[in-house]
């Protein structure tokens, strides 16, 4: 009885902590949002922004906010959520603190697909705004499928370590293929690819958001519905099996969901790595590894990270812009290396 009370007490405590962290994340997100709305080539004061948002601004203000800044901000947030949740899932199922969507070849595959689009589809045949994300999505799905196939052994199943090594190998192969295509391109055409590779959320529109939203709407609930499985998988294979989990099946579903989330995010945002690594880690340090809490917090942190990256990139060397992916990598890679020195791989 006493024990029960104490567990429910810690449970309550945890819930309170979760709500508090969520609230703080939201506040930070909103602050960044306001800051991001105000800054840029054409600076506007918060009250002007507010006036425009409720429909009292002039046409130019309206155009800047609704057609340029707002979609960009919303897209950053959505991409951050997608990548962070994908990273969470991958880390939990591989029980490897260093797993990341980029390591599964998702970014490389999408990059190659975009390069192929730019190289082989003549200008004007297909609308590049709409079709590059489609190509990138297929590229990402294809390369992660390749990694999965190569890493999978019939009698041993899917070993996390092999998955990551295979990912590195496939990435190296894809990069070699990209080099061959790159040197045949004209500089102007290559520029699009270069921007994409650097993770530049510059040229965006509401259409991109509409393209990404369905993926998030479908796969986020699937992942969230599996929090119990994730909690069990996180404990280790033997325990998970003894608790009656169909390991292979659940793992496949979850990997599929993680890949779809990351691939769809990357296809609209460009290659942004390390978000799927940092956000889950910070979340775990803040709230622990109960997935009910851990998933939403990492989603929020991911959103915050990408939005901050994009905003910093716009501000720091204005008027020229630094791609968000670069900013995130500069923060993320040292953190990754730090984790590497601590981890037991």
């Amino acid at each position: 009885m006493i024990e029960h009370m104490s567990t429910s007490k810690t449970e309550q405590k945890k819930k309170r902590k979760f709500l508090m962290i969520t609230a703080i994340c939201f506040i930070l997100l909103i602050l960044t949002f306001i800051f991001s709305m105000n800054t840029g080539a054409n600076s506007q004061s918060p009250s002007e922004v507010f006036q425009t948002l409720i429909g009292n601004g002039d046409r130019q203000q309206h155009l800047i906010l609704f057609e340029f800044r707002l979609p960009r901000i919303v897209l950053s947030v959505l991409v951050g959520i997608g990548l962070a949740v994908s990273g969470c899932v991958l880390q939990s199922i591989s029980r490897n603190a260093l797993a990341e969507p980029g390591l599964l070849g998702i970014h490389a595959g999408a990059g190659l697909a975009i390069l192929m689009f730019v190289s082989f589809v003549p200008v004007g045949v297909l609308n590049s705004t709409y079709f590059t994300p489609v190509f990138a999505l297929f590229g990402a799905l294809f390369s992660s499928f390749l990694v999965y196939r190569f890493a999978h052994k019939r009698n041993e199943g899917l070993l996390p370590m092999r998955l990551i090594l295979t990912g590195v190998a496939v990435q190296a192969g894809i990069q070699a293929a990209m080099i061959v295509l790159t040197i045949h391109l004209t500089p102007e055409r290559y520029e699009t690819v270069a921007y994409w590779l650097a993770g530049h959320i510059g040229t965006t529109s509401w259409d991109y958001i509409l393209a990404l939203l369905p993926w998030l709407i479908i796969f986020l609930p699937i992942v969230y519905g599996k929090v119990r499985v994730l909690n069990i998988l996180h404990l280790g294979d033997p325990l998970a099996i003894s608790l009656g989990t169909d390991l292979e099946k659940e793992r496949k579903i979850l990997i599929g969901a993680a890949v779809c989330l990351a691939a769809s995010s990357v296809s609209v945002s460009g290659s942004i790595s390390f978000v799927g690594l940092i956000a889950p880690h910070l979340a775990k340090q803040l709230i622990g590894s109960r997935h009910e809490y851990y998933l939403p917090i990492s989603a929020l942190l991911g959103a915050l990270l990408v939005l901050l990256g994009d905003t910093i990139g716009r501000v720091i060397l204005a008027p020229s812009e630094i791609p968000a992916g670069l900013v995130v990598a500069v923060i993320g890679a040292p953190y990754f290396l730090y984790l590497l020195t601590k981890s037991n791989v």
Binding site: G102, L103, V168, Q171, E191, A194, Y195, L197, A198, G199, H200, S273, F274, I322, P323, G325, L326, A329, V330, G332, A333, P334, F336, L337, L340
Partner: peptide, 16 residues
């Protein structure tokens, strides 16, 4: 892989 990712994105940024 991490050092490659970091330095590649930095050089990509400089190049752009």
């Amino acid at each position: 892989a991490a050092v490659t990712a970091l330095l590649t994105s930095l050089s990509q940024g400089i190049a752009i």
